[in-house]
Design a binder for these strands. Structure first.
Length: 328
DNA sequence: GCCGTTTTCGGCCCGACTGTTTTCAGTCG
């Protein structure tokens, strides 16, 4: 029994619940799944040592999910999970993994066109059967076709050692462009995770629009997913996704903090900010009432404004580092 | 379903981009 098995089940349950438009539970299951993923200890060992109560000490795991973990440890399955799986056609929630499809669109596909899996979707796309559905037009068709291709080529995570040369080469290419001032690759790469899902590149630049033009036209770009004034995303020939953001100098620290994550770490920080009467986003720490800018130029500024010591990127996983950084 | 140094009820992070629509819902990170 591995933690990975259980987190996969909870992710799956979250997807199905989302399609069923159940409120809040999807977030809860996802939060639990993410928490389980980053725990180094095996859940069944934790359970054997301390029982259900110890499982419930893990942030994001309460009575309901705790009991389901116990059920899996003892029986090898979770009844609620199997019920949810049965309530939808087999392979249906896989559709959510196609880029551009979320719970709403996937539901429309099933209801209006009886599309139950990726194969059905491919067929319908070839025959242009989706045009006319609410939210589906020509461009959507095009994007879904690309999304399926991408899905088939396998959206795997890359080993850190594998992406490192790619990340360095991208940073080098962008640095050569004179508009770019500061550049750093954030995300799971900066946290030096064992595997990296995509690259988050953060920059400050004189003319963001020009930088976006330059970035989306780099020679190893296979596909442009999005291109805006401050954010863009592409897929490289290697199938690695790269997101870039351009921010102002005074926000660089806040943005760097925000895009270095991880997600749970950031949510915890934002909650601390709220408690102090602040608001934290990628642009800085602000006074909630007056909206006055309080910090954001450097990461140290951001952590200090929240009453925390600086936390190195590798430790930002929401596994006790925040408590440790709280100043007495 | 989880959680609490204002809460055991009633909130639940937040902003950018796209495509479709005629002002916004859905998706993503």
């Amino acid at each position: 029994m591995t933690n990975k098995e259980i987190s996969t089940i909870f992710y799956e349950m979250a997807d199905i619940l989302e399609i069923k438009e159940v409120k809040w539970k999807p977030q809860a299951y996802r939060k639990a799944a993410r928490a389980i993923e980053v725990i180094p200890e095996n859940l069944s060992d934790i359970y054997k040592k301390g029982g259900l109560k110890t499982l419930e000490e893990i942030p994001g795991i309460g009575e309901g999910i705790g009991k389901k973990i116990v059920e899996y440890i003892e029986t090898g399955k979770i009844k609620k999970h199997q019920e949810l799986l049965k309530s939808l056609p087999k392979g249906f929630q896989k559709l959510m993994e196609v880029q551009g499809l979320g719970p709403k669109k996937v539901k429309i596909l099933l209801k209006k066109k009886n599309i139950k899996n990726i194969g059905d979707l491919e067929k319908a796309l070839k025959q242009h059967k989706l045009i006319g559905l609410k939210g589906f037009a020509e461009k959507t068709e095009e994007n879904l076709e690309k999304g399926i291709q991408l899905f088939k080529s396998g959206k795997k995570r890359f080993d850190y050692s594998e992406v490192r040369p790619i990340a360095e080469s991208i940073a080098k290419q962008l640095k050569k462009f004179k508009e770019v001032r500061k550049i750093i690759v954030a995300g799971s790469f900066r946290r030096k995770e064992i595997t990296v899902g995509d690259l988050d590149v953060l920059m400050t630049a004189k003319n963001p629009i020009k930088v976006m033009d330059y970035f989306t036209k780099m020679p190893n770009v296979k596909r442009v997913l999005a291109k805006g004034k401050t954010r863009s995303a592409v897929i490289l020939d290697s199938n690695l996704q790269v997101d870039v953001r351009v921010v102002e100098d005074k926000c660089f620290g806040a943005a760097l903090q925000y895009f270095t994550g991880n997600k749970m770490h950031n949510i915890s920080l934002r909650k601390i900010a709220i408690k102090k009467g602040f608001k934290l986003n990628e642009y800085g720490v602000f006074d909630k009432k007056t909206n006055q800018f309080l910090a954001g130029k450097t990461e140290e500024d951001v952590y200090n404004a929240l009453g925390l010591k600086y936390i190195p990127p590798e430790e930002r996983t929401n596994s006790g580092e925040i408590e440790k950084a709280m100043k007495k």
